[in-house]
Design a protein around this nucleic acid. Structure first.
Length: 491
RNA sequence: ACGGCUGUGGCGCAGUCUGGUCAGCGCGCCGCUCUGGGAGAGCGGAGGUCGCAGGUUCGAGUCCUGCCAGCCGUACCA
């Protein structure tokens, strides 16, 4: 079934391409539970690599990790009015704590074990954490609290897509408490910058920093800041958010502190998070019609060495492979594929599908001339890398590939950021030419809804970098322009 | 959640309309041999209560009902 081994081309069916890349890359498997996926070792390794790098960045900015419970008393969710409205529709509940044998031979909840108050499986942890912060915060000397947690959360989504939207997902959520508004605002912006530089430096995904409109803002936040990435089909993907929560949660959970001046004041809050959705962002940003492409800085395996030999050459080839492996190990993430039941060609395809940035082939001819035969995952002809000094050359190549991926993605973001002259113009263009539309926006919430109803495009953000807008008129509403806004179709 | 389509060994499918050698094909998998620079070949094997539960019938993969899951579209959302 040679024809079934490939990936559906992007041009033919972009959604199917995405699913094919993930399945050929061996990242995920279906689970028996609706909307829940299994992260297979290669998929999880990508998330682990993200975790490691992000965790270092959080620590470097003064944060510490902690862990809060999965179960939240249902009454907590109702404390903050907007928050409950935002999440009520997608909460899973635990109502019993015991099963018993049922008449049909199976099991059923034991009615006697019904909980007095159902527990919500956390869709996010603001409520639990602010309940706890109430116990921890007494004086200005207890502040700031800069805590992050790595956790799973559950949001009962109707429509799921691997990595981009699943019922259960892995993420980190930072929750900080501050004595002043300015300090909390500064934290919000600092963490947005952490996300943006992580996305660009490690994931090779250029992002647009912006502020969410009221309609798109996190339920319970005063302001939500976002990094928006552009996928290869021109759709936007919210890749991370940082929220200025004001005093909303402090008020809801009655968290006050005594200031230096001796006054009782409400605590200021932020929260910020990124999730396994970022794996989907990487897949969609860099992969091609051959399959997965991983940026070297993120790739669990950066270099794979494939021995090529006839039986009579086995020993000499393997000696050279082992020497090369020893040279690279510790400097780059390298793996030797010495499986004897596959021919080299089959291995090439497999590792290409898994997104490994660089492949080194070592056969009798290579041993003779003292160089490995190399191939970049991202294209170009095969080329020789002399065994001597190979590790430096390999590191150079990985750095080049990393850079090239970022540049390609950045070019796409730039080239596909458009303007629209009028409502009709916009409605037509967003369909024919998906991308980011930079609009001098003058509309209100209702106008925003009208755009969405007509085009499915949403106001992704108000970019933090705002060109002058004085005197411009909003092409979509005819009203005086207030602020530049990005509109796009989004995941 | 709504509408359309789909569910048959691990994967991709044929068979369903017209109920009765209809449990089949390709790939993959296991064993051996020859092989080995882009998905190798030969020979020999293993593997399926036909998504689940009821119903109609002498007889159900095939017909009926319900449920579950997946895909596409729509609505909602990180």
């Amino acid at each position: 079934m040679a024809q079934d081994r490939g990936v559906t081309p992007r041009s033919e069916n972009y959604s199917q391409w995405y699913l094919d890349v993930i399945s050929h890359g061996d990242l995920i498997d279906d689970s028996p539970v609706r909307g829940c996926k299994v992260l297979k070792p290669h998929g999880y390794a990508i998330w682990e690599a993200m975790q490691r790098d992000l965790d270092d960045r959080f620590k470097a900015t003064g944060h510490v990790n902690a862990y809060f419970p999965l179960f939240i008393p249902m009454s907590f969710l109702s404390r903050e009015a907007e928050h409950v409205e935002g999440f009520a529709k997608e909460c899973a509940l635990v109502t019993h704590h015991r099963l018993r044998a049922s008449a049909d031979g199976g099991v059923e909840p034991d009615p006697a074990s019904q909980l007095e108050e159902p527990l919500v499986i956390r869709p996010t942890s603001e409520t639990m954490i602010w309940h706890m912060y109430g116990r921890w915060i007494d004086s200005w000397r207890d502040l700031p609290i800069l805590v992050n947690q790595w956790a799973n959360v559950v949001r009962w989504e109707m429509k799921t897509r691997p990595f981009l939207r699943t019922a259960e997902f892995l993420w980190q959520e930072g929750h900080t408490a501050h004595a002043t508004r300015a300090e909390a605002e500064e934290e919000t912006s600092r963490m947005l910058d952490v996300y943006a530089s992580f996305a660009e430096e490690v994931l090779a995904i250029p992002v647009l920093r912006g502020r969410k409109s009221a309609r798109e803002r996190f339920a319970g936040a005063v302001e939500t800041y976002t990094i928006e990435a552009m996928m290869q089909n021109g759709w936007a993907l919210q890749a991370g958010t940082s929220h200025f929560l004001g005093q909303n949660f402090a008020r809801a959970f009655d968290v006050t502190f005594q200031s230096e001046a001796g006054e009782r004041e409400l605590v200021w809050a932020t929260s910020w998070g990124v999730s396994t959705r970022l794996v989907g962002a990487v897949v969609m940003t860099h992969s091609d019609d051959e399959g997965l492409v991983l940026p070297p800085a993120l790739a669990p395996v950066q270099v794979v060495i494939i021995p090529v030999y006839k039986n009579k050459d086995r020993e000499t080839v393997m000696a050279a492979v082992d020497a090369l492996h020893a040279q690279l190990e510790g400097r780059v993430r390298v793996r030797v594929d010495d499986r004897d039941n596959l021919r080299p060609g089959a291995k090439y395809y497999e590792w290409e599908h898994k997104g490994v940035p660089l492949r080194l082939e070592v056969g009798p001819r290579d041993v003779k001339r003292g160089a490995a035969f190399a191939k970049r995952r991202t294209g170009g002809d095969k080329f020789a890398i002399p065994f001597e000094g190979a590790v430096e050359r390999v590191e150079e190549i990985l750095a080049e590939v990393q850079q090239a991926l970022l540049e390609t993605a950045r070019r796409r973001l730039d080239e596909r950021t458009y303007a629209a002259e009028s409502w009709d113009d916009f409605v037509r263009l967003i369909e024919e030419q998906p991308g980011f539309y930079q609009i001098p926006w003058g509309g209100d919430d209702a106008d925003e809804d009208r755009v969405k109803d007509a085009t499915k495009a949403t106001l992704r953000c108000y970019p933090l970098k705002q060109p002058p807008i004085e005197g411009l008129t909003c092409p979509l509403t005819g009203k005086p322009a207030r602020e530049w806004a990005i509109f796009a179709r989004a995941y």
